[in-house]
Design a binder for these strands. Structure first.
Length: 194
DNA sequence: TAGAGGATTGAT
DNA sequence: TCAATCCTCTAC
């Protein structure tokens, strides 16, 4: 199957958890001039304004999370802990405040560039902060369109039979919402984060 | 404007 | 288990 770039309709239809699950097996591609890197998405988390784990909780818009309130199909990239850039895909309709966090990739192309950028040669994309560094993705791309930016997502016909679900990571402050089974990953895939 | 805290990571 | 490190938000 030849690669098909996901269109905006993919990101705007259905529930954010359905889209988070559907993104497993899709291919994230980043291009910087001749430096093309890509990887299969093997781990995601869903976030919605309706629960406390989300930056858009309570429909509260700030300069940081404004991209989340745009219509689906754009990137929401923000800095966490002052060190790491985290990549989210905005979903749903304009004003909804929903996004899917991409947590881990299985590298396909450009492993050489990834290793060079991270200064590491092992599991360079098995974590949300690591994969953005490996692919050269920074907050400069926050709010950019997935159909007209150096970063996009393709469908290459890859499907996984076993998908696992569980609570999301690092949002203990969200109370009962932290227990929502909104984390999705490919079972037994070695590139999933710890 | 100061202070607290955070969707992580890697070293110990 | 803990420190690194700095952006974002809130309170004053």
């Amino acid at each position: 199957m030849s690669p098909v770039i996901l269109q905006q309709s993919f990101y705007r239809q259905g529930d954010v958890t359905e889209i988070a699950r559907a993104l497993l097996g899709k291919v994230l591609v980043s291009r910087h001039g001749k430096r093309m890197t890509s990887g299969i998405i093997v781990e995601t988390e869903a976030y919605s304004w309706q629960e406390r784990g989300c930056h858009a909780y309570g429909n509260k818009m700030t300069p940081r999370n404004a991209a989340m309130f745009e219509a689906g199909g754009i990137l929401y990239i923000y800095r966490c802990y002052g060190i790491h850039n985290l990549l989210n895909v905005v979903t749903g309709q304009q004003g909804m405040g929903e996004a899917v966090l991409v947590r881990a990739l299985e590298p396909i192309k450009g492993l050489k560039w990834m290793e060079e950028r991270t200064g590491n040669s092992q599991r360079v994309t098995s974590g949300p902060g690591k994969l953005t560094k490996a692919m050269g993705i920074t907050t400069d791309l926050n709010g950019s369109d997935l159909n007209s930016s150096p970063v996009w997502i393709e469908d290459q016909g890859i499907t996984f039979r076993q998908i696992s679900t569980g609570p999301r990571i690092g949002i203990d402050y969200a109370g009962a919402d932290a227990d929502l089974p909104w984390r999705f990953w490919v079972a037994k895939n070695p590139w999933v984060s710890r």
